[in-house]
Design a protein around this nucleic acid. Structure first.
Lengths: 111, 111
DNA sequence: CTCATTCATCGATAATCGACGATAGTCGAT
DNA sequence: ATCGACTATCGTCGATTATCGATGAATGAG
């Protein structure tokens, strides 16, 4: 539908608001942005120990950040024996800009 | 340049990381998302007192949230005598998706 | 000038969060 | 079964933050 005209665009539902809040919270930290960017630039699944070597924080903290990013599906874990590799979820690219546009009242339903 | 191919996309600079962190922090709160969505849906500058009537929080808290959103230029203040109206900054629509794509290593310089 | 209105700022409080170190759990190899 | 390597969880601490109520500052009306 054409929602770009002067329609009375509907406000966000409480559910969508909560969802978008979780997404933004997940990226509202410099280390998580660097982490996600690292995985994106390397373009491959990386083990936790490998990621730790690229960031100025400890292993437990990296594991925590990966958990946060995984909870919103920005990264996907790949258990590999005793190790666990993490990779970027390419799909978060599509949903994220759509969320911004929904907040701005430029899209009604899902997009 | 064509950075959409399989180039070794450069990592984010510390400066860009800090900038994007501030943007995401600004939206990492349900009330600020509702606030921004309210201004976007209404499609007009609104006085603080008017905004307060639409949200379940006090006037001082609304004023605080508006300050946070204004610091990253997501809203723009319009002093009007004793009142102050706030309006959405349409430009944040353009920059935001570009930031996400930069984190994902899909864009090199500015976009 | 005085007063009422409107918004911003201040101080306090409780909750959330990022960081660490230590510990526990899991798996493969020996 | 034991050991070693790797990751997840736990407890804690300090910093940040969302919220409130009260106060302060600026403006327009009378």
């Amino acid at each position: 539908m054409n929602e770009t005209t002067s329609n009375p665009a509907p406000p966000l539902s409480d559910e969508d608001t909560a969802t978008y809040t979780r997404w933004f919270k997940a990226l509202a930290d410099p280390m998580r942005i660097r982490l996600l960017n690292l995985l994106a630039v390397e373009r491959r699944a990386m083990a936790v120990g490998e990621i730790v070597e690229h960031l100025p924080i400890g292993q437990s903290t990296v594991s925590h950040h990966l958990k946060v990013l995984a909870e919103v599906r920005f990264v996907l874990p790949e258990p590999r024996g005793t190790s666990t590799r993490y990779a970027v979820n390419e799909r978060c690219l599509e949903r994220f800009p759509a969320a911004v546009r929904a907040i701005m009242g430029l899209e009604a339903g899902r997009a």
